[in-house]
Structure formats: C-alpha cells, structure tokens
Nucleic acid binder design. Structure first.
Lengths: 218, 218
DNA sequence: ACCTATTTTTAGTTTACTCTAAATATTTAT
DNA sequence: ATAAATATTTAGAGTAAACTAAAAATAGGT
C-alpha cells in the first residue's frame, strides 16, 4: 500500500463509499484536492488490487477488504490525534495535519502500544469514534444541535466542521465536548439559537448549531 | 525536502561527510543500499540546493546547512527511538525500522513536545547522543571495549553494531548500557576477553568487544 | 427522443526517483 | 609510464503519481 492509495481509500470511505452506493469520480477528486483524471487512474489501480468496485462511468465503492483497510487508517489517524492532544499538548485544531502524516507509519506494534498507552480511547478529540482493531466501528447515536427541539437537553459529543476557525470559536466560547447543552429559544427569523452551556447562556447562529453534534438526554 | 533527500543527508553524515574529507559515491551507494548512478543524480540535486559540496569524481561532503539538516533528522530519529522504548515498550532492537519512518514527519511542535515528554534525553537507547535543537552535538568520550587495557574498568555507554543479533546477544548475557565492565583477562590467541559485568563473569569474542563502547573510569 | 451540459475517461506529458549498460575518469600495480 | 582494475558518470528507460487537453459517455431539460 502506497501513501497515495491509503489516502484514496480514506477519502472514499469518508464520502460514504462503504455502502453499495458508488461515489463519483468528481466527488473523490474534490475531497482529495486533485483532478478527476487522477482519480480514474487510481480507481483502476485499486480495483486491480480488489480494494474497490469500479466500472467505467459508474463510480467507485469500497470492497470488504477496502473497508477494512480504510478503517485501519482511520483508526491510526484518530489514535494519533488523541496522542497529540493528551500527551503532547496539542489543541484540537492543530492535530489534523500532523495526524495525516502519522497515519501512514507502518508498524502494527506501534499502533497497538499507542492504543494501550492512551488507555484504549473510544473517541478522538473531535468526538469521532475510533475503529477497534478488529474492524468494529461504534457509530454513536447523535444529532446536530440545529435539529434539537426547543427545551430539550443534550451532551455535546462531536463537531462536524473541524476547521481551526470553528474549533477556536468553540474554545473562546467555552463550549467543549462533554458539556450539557439546553436549547432555551429558537429564532424563526434566522434560525439562531439561544442556548445554555453549563451555567452560561449565549446565542449562536444556525451555522454554528449545524456543526455541533449532541446526544439527546433520554 | 523530500524523504529521499533527507535519507541521503543522513547517510552522508553517518559516513563522516560533515568534515572536509569528501565521501565517495560508492560508499554512499552501499550505505543507502542503492546504485552509484543514483547517488550521482542525488549529489547534483543536493549540490543545487546548497546542501552538499560536490565536484565530479571528487565525492560529496555536507555544507553548513546540510549538516544542520542532517542533525535535525538524526535528532528526530533518536528522540523517536527513546519514545518507542520508554513509552511504548519496544526493545532496543525493534526501534530502528519504525524510527526510520517517524523521523520524516514534519512538525516542529511535534518534536519539541516529544522532547519535553521524554524529559530532554541526552542519549538514545543505543547510547548515541541526541543532537540538541540548536544543532549542538555532544559527542561523548568513549572507546571500544576491545581497546581497553587489561585490568581497567569502564561503564558501558553504547553499541557500534545495532543489529538484532548483536543486541539480543547483549540482552541474553545481561549486558546493558550503564553496566560497569572490568577486563579480567585478554587472550592473545584470538583476542577474546574475559570480563566482569556487575558481579557476573564471562568470556566474549573480539567481535563482541569491538562493538561495545565504554567510558573509562578515571 | 434529442440536444446540451456535465461528468468521466483517454492520451500524452511532467516530476521525482530509481535502475542497467555503456562510456569515461581515476587509481593501482608493475 | 602505462596497462589493468576500479570508481564514477552519462544516457536511456521504467514506475508511480500527478497534470492538461481532447474525446467519449451519461444525465437533464424541453
């Protein structure tokens, strides 16, 4: 597996290519910041290796083994992110770029021991679940804050957007994973929300609410 | 800097290319397990970038900036080795291959924080000194065990050969860095040594003694 | 159903790195 | 000093990954 092949598998997975619905060449190109013609080349190569299903003009989806590999790369990426935050004092908006490099290091022992050092974490710093070694991928029940009903309460469990701009906004406004959020008011005009986070109240725009995942309290 | 360029700089440094004596194309090719013609190509490329001095048929030596870069790569390699041994329970014969990959990760913060996490170690698991961030390279006074005088005592501070075969031999014979070694007898016939390590006595061949570094007790 | 717009693929190039084989320079031995 | 051996460079070619531009297939709108 070359680094490039690994990145394609990861991109296809993130675009939903693990289901039977195939992903379009264009979509992959955009995600990878490359050109569609390059995607076609790689699609053929990965199909040769039995990692994707590919038929001309029909898009690409991952095979069983493609999914396995994609998950193992995502596992590495997210474990490294936890390491960077927990052990090396990175903030959650700094980890992505470095984890993109670290995820390609080849050593089974390395990742097993890292997992142990970190205490077998279930989620990365952005609240995304970490695939288990055996390929189990524990998707969590969650919904966007923007979809919460008036008056309902939830725990903040993840972010959709992981840009520095957004993550810094959350830091500045003292909104962190694990915080309890209650929807106090919903503004019809611009869909902004008045929320209570811990014992602090504030207004947030729809765009913010549409990028924060919460788990509803039952 | 590509990965390949970094590997060439490191190899040239290890062959002594930081002094004015240039290193031959063949020597570099052997060290890198590649062909002399590939070395010539890279020598031209690195010379273009001002990282090596190169004249046709005259060999290669590192420039100031080449040395700086080589040291920064060696620093990363050795810090990662310490990390693998101290934090991830690797044994000293397992670290090299993984560190070869990790040394190419690009992030200044990563390596600074790693250094801090490890408590600013001065030596790697094989006793080799770790270059400081500012480029200082604290070469330690040391000599080969095979060169020690009869009856003299020293502390084991490093290994020359870092192959698994050799490192495992040391583990099996309970010889570790930091142990005090005394030369009890020198055999003229085959230059083997009878030594005392801690309170254990054993015979070692010349080949073993010629791959163990000691620091003489004054 | 047909024409147009969009998407996807093909064909041909480029860059970085490597190799083999042949040519050239240097070193060594007599 | 010169021939033989060795070391080094050049030339040409291969591979992986990317790109551009042109061709081909698909999808949408009427």
């Amino acid at each position: 597996m070359t680094r490039s092949e690994e990145n394609y598998l990861k991109a296809i997975f993130h675009l939903g290519g693990s289901s039977t619905t195939p992903i379009s060449t264009n979509a992959i190109a955009e995600q990878m910041e490359t050109k569609p013609s390059s995607v076609t080349d790689m699609a053929k190569k990965l199909a040769e290796k039995g990692l994707v299903n590919y038929k001309k003009y029909q898009g690409v989806s991952l095979t069983e083994s493609g999914i396995k590999l994609a998950l193992s790369i995502i596992r590495k990426h997210r474990l490294w992110e936890v390491f960077l935050v927990e052990k090396l004092n990175f903030s959650w908006d700094e980890v992505h770029e470095v984890a993109e490099q670290l995820e390609h290091i080849k050593s089974e022992k390395l990742i097993d021991q890292l997992d142990t050092l970190l205490g077998h974490p279930k989620y990365d710093p952005h609240g995304d679940p970490i695939p288990a070694k055996d390929g189990t991928f524990p998707e969590q029940e969650k919904q966007l804050l923007s979809e919460m009903l008036l008056g309902s309460k939830g725990v903040c469990v993840g972010v959709k957007d992981t840009s520095s701009a957004f993550l810094n906004f959350l830091d500045r406004n003292k909104i962190a994973l694990g915080d309890t959020i209650e929807v106090m008011e919903k503004e019809d005009f611009d869909q902004s929300l008045h929320i209570k986070v811990g014992n602090q109240e504030l207004n947030i725009s729809h765009q913010i609410a549409a990028n924060l995942y919460v788990k509803i309290q039952v």
